[in-house]
């Protein structure tokens, strides 16, 4: 641990995250998303129609059914188009030491979580996804919820592969930590959480 040196570092020789070949999400996932969206759009259409027919006597809305349908189809078209673009913009890569996920239409965002900093892994599978053999994976780090990495629309096997490779790393690290730092460190670490602010809270409870 102490003999870790970092002097001779040839920056240009380092692997570049931006040049990593990204894998697109499963085509089937786009279909799943469209299905989910259509459900929402159908409900929207229902609501719009109910509003229209409830107030059809109103002179303001009379004979404006076409406008309603026009707005609705514009929303659908725009929504699906945006979905399509955002789908093609998404991509992930599983590197030896980290996971990369790129997304975003207006702002292109790349999240990189290294395997040795992952706290735990979650594999989700929704009802529709299960039918299509898809799954999503979520990597949690200690950096807070906005730094968690979630990839939807993976093949179940791929998701499992990622989960396994990351979990292995977590176990490896925890074991290493246990060997190197016996009771003293872990104990003092936990022992050192005296927070001044909490004392006041306790005082009031006692009263």
């Amino acid at each position: 641990m102490e003999d870790f040196t970092n002097k001779t570092l040839n920056i240009s020789a380092l692997p570049k995250f931006e040049e990593t070949q990204l894998q697109p999400l499963e085509k089937k996932y786009f279909f799943v998303m469209v299905l989910q969206r259509s459900l929402f759009y159908m409900m929207l259409l229902g609501v719009l129609l109910v509003i229209y027919f409830m107030n059809s006597k109103d002179s303001f809305l009379e004979d404006k059914l076409m406008y309603f349908l026009g707005i609705w189809s514009f929303l659908v078209l725009f929504g699906i188009l945006y979905l399509r673009i955002s789908f093609t913009k998404k991509g992930f890569a599983l590197r030896e030491h980290d996971v990369i996920f790129k997304s975003g239409v207006v702002s292109e965002t790349t999240v990189i979580v290294t395997n040795n900093r992952v706290q735990h892994v979650a594999l989700h599978q929704g009802l529709l996804s299960r039918y299509f053999g898809l799954a999503s994976i979520e990597l949690f780090t200690a950096g807070g919820s906005s730094s968690d990495l979630k990839i939807n629309g993976l093949l179940l096997e791929d998701a499992k592969k990622i989960k396994e490779s990351v979990s292995e790393k977590i176990i490896e690290i925890t074991e290493e930590f246990k060997e190197e730092a016996p009771t003293y460190d872990s104990l003092t670490n936990e022992a050192l959480q005296l927070e001044g602010d909490n004392k006041e809270d306790n005082e009031t409870k006692e009263f």
Partner: peptide, 8 residues
């Protein structure tokens, strides 16, 4: 813990 890059 994690790195995020952004570009509009």
């Amino acid at each position: 813990q994690a790195v995020k890059t952004h570009q509009f």
